[in-house]
Each structure stands twice: as structure tokens, then as C-alpha cells.
Amino acid sequence: MTQLTAEAPRPVEFSTVGLPEQRRIELWEGHNADALIGLRCRTIDAAVLEATELNLQLDQVHLARVRGTSHVVERDAEVIRRRPADAVALYFSLVGEAFFYHRDGVRVVRPGQLLICDADQPFLRGFSNGLEELVVKVPREVFAAVTGTGRPAEPVVVDFGSGGSPYARALARQVGRAARAVDPVPADERVLLELVAALATGGRDGLSPAHLAAARAFIGIHLADPGLSAPQVAAAVGLSTRHLSRVFAGEGTTLPKYVLERRLEAAHAMLQRPGSSATTVAETAHACGFASADHFSRAFAARFGERATDLRRRAVAARAMAPDPTG
């Protein structure tokens, strides 16, 4: 279990669930105006709004995870005048197709796509089938400092799924891990801003934290592939294999060592899960990307000081001796 340090901020949750139905929209608007970005809100066909938001304020950047039923939000000139955001917003769509109406036209944002826009330009967003999204709010002066431009010239939609931008995918992974209710992982704000810069500039030499985060995200997705290679990772991140090697060297490791460590950690966690006794050690090794069970066994013993079979046996025994929580 990942632990937050005492100094690390934790996400704060707000939900309309359980609030008086006639006041939900009012309270949701008030919360967003104070915690994230001011919006007018209305539901479709007078439905009752059920929405939940996790907010995490870092030193400069604000992160959020938003879930909700069908509704429409608007940030018009009057709302902007009363509640200026002075920020650039990045919306990562996880669930539910959304439309984004702006002075330049209409864009459809689907799950696996990121919308980047100036939060102080009027817009209308609609979620006919509900939504789950991640949000990054970057103050305009911070955005200008890391990208060299004060704001996006127009709204931009970027794919962050498989085959999409590795920087967007890495950023979504970082935000998603930080803005969650259970076991949130502290976000490295420097890396977040490097990824924002890489998105805005298309990537450039010198963005080692962004390239490293993108490479790690790609490796995490493809960890089970025994054929995962440095050229494959480098191509996904948009670097040469030599430059990618330098990026990992800057962290005091190599790409093969990093991949091996991640696979061993994944196997160690799998062997302790409930139900692990139903899976052989060889099957666990294969699921974590090891082509050879013998190689896995040797590497596991060298890393953890015990055999994989011994760890699983001890984990099964511990669960058998644990008291029944149902009484």
C-alpha cells in the first residue's frame, strides 16, 4: 500500500449524493466556483444531479477527478467576469462522450481523449450519458513559464489512449493516481508541469522528467509483454534509444533494470493476493512478462531473499489464520 507523507496533501471529496434534491445544482455550482472552475449547471429533463468531485491542490497546479450523471455545464461571459480562473484547463475523458461548444465550433471528446482549453474563454460542455474525467488546472502564468505561451490559441483535443500521445497518457496516469480516494499516490508537480510542457511543445530535448514519466507509463501498460524492448519504448516516447538510455541513466539505472524491477514488484504483489494459490508460480511469472520461469525464480530470490513459492505459501497460511471478518 502506498503511503502519503505527512506533508503531502490529500484529495478532498465533495458529493451531491444525499443532499436535498432541490439544492443539489446550487451547491454543486458553489463548490466548483470555490474549489475548481466556476460554472452554470443544469440537468437534462430535470433529472436529479448526482455528482462527486475529488480535489487536490498542489503548490501551483490543481488536480481533480469528477464523476456525474447526465448534465450540461456552461462558462459564459458573466460567470467568467465574476469568477475568473486565469488558468488553462486540461480535461481527460475516462467515461462518457462529451461535446464542447466554443466560439470556434463544436468538438466531441470521447473516452481516451484530452481537451485543452483556456478556462476564461466562454464554452458549453454536455454529458448526455454522464461522465468521469480527470482535470488539471494550470495557472496561466505557470503555463506560460513552462510552455513559452500564455494560453492555447484554440481548444485542442489529444488522444491519450493506446497509440496516442505518450505525454498525455503519462500525465493522465500521474493525475489518476493522485486524485483518487483510496491509496492516492503523491504527485510530483515538477513532472506534471514537464508533461504539460511536452504536450504544448510536442516534446523537446531537455525534458527528461516528461520523457521518463512517459516511458514509465508505456512500460506499465506493456509490462506483461515479454518482448518489450528499448526500441519499442523509445519509439512510443518519441526518442532515440540512445537518448532514452541517457534519460534512465539520469535516474541511476537502465531501462532493462527498471523493467525487471517493475516485473518483480508486480509478481511479489500478485503472489500475496487472495486466491494466488490457484495460480502457479510459472503462470505468475508469465503474467508479469517473464519469458523464462527459471530466470524469474533466480531474479526473485536475488531481489527479495526468498523463493516465490515460499512467499506464496506464507501468504496463504497468513490468510488461513486471519479471523473471519463476518464473525
Rank of each mutant, 00 (worst) to 15 (best):
A200K: 11
A318H: 03
C41Y: 01
D118A: 11
A293N: 11
C41S: 08
G150A: 08
G238I: 01
A64L: 10
A269I: 09
A249P: 00
D324N: 06
R262I: 00
T5R: 14
S165F: 12
A197Q: 04
A213G: 01
A214N: 07
T326G: 10
G148L: 11
N129T: 05
L19T: 05
G130E: 09
A181H: 09
A269V: 07
L271T: 01
D120K: 12
R23E: 02
A315P: 00
E251I: 04
A181Y: 13
D188I: 00
I80L: 10
S162D: 15
G206F: 03
L199A: 08
H222C: 03
T69K: 08
G252Q: 05
P231D: 01
S15D: 00
R177Y: 07
R10E: 13
F160W: 12
V48Y: 09
P84T: 09
R303L: 00
D294S: 15
A35T: 14
H295S: 08
G68E: 02
D76I: 14
L192D: 06
V79P: 00
A215D: 01
A249N: 05
S276A: 15
V157N: 11
A249D: 02
D159S: 15
E189S: 06
V247G: 05
S128L: 06
F92C: 09
A278H: 13
A8V: 04
L39P: 01
P9M: 13
R319H: 08
A315I: 09
S292E: 08
F296L: 06
T241I: 00
V73N: 07
V61W: 03
T16V: 13
T201G: 02
E53G: 01
A317I: 04
R65Y: 05
R75C: 14
V106T: 07
V191K: 13
H62S: 06
E283K: 06
P226L: 15
R169F: 04
R83I: 04
T326P: 00
E154H: 03
R169S: 13
L27E: 05
T279L: 08
M270H: 07
T280R: 06
A46P: 00
A234K: 14
R83H: 15
A278C: 07
Q232T: 03
G126W: 00
T147Y: 12
A234D: 01
L199H: 04
G289V: 05
R303Q: 12
L192F: 11
A170V: 15
I37R: 10
K137S: 14
R125I: 03
A210E: 10
E133Y: 03
F92V: 11
F127L: 06
F218S: 05
D76M: 04
M1A: 10
R262T: 04
A282H: 10
F218A: 11
V185F: 02
H211K: 08
A145V: 04
D294A: 13
P166W: 15
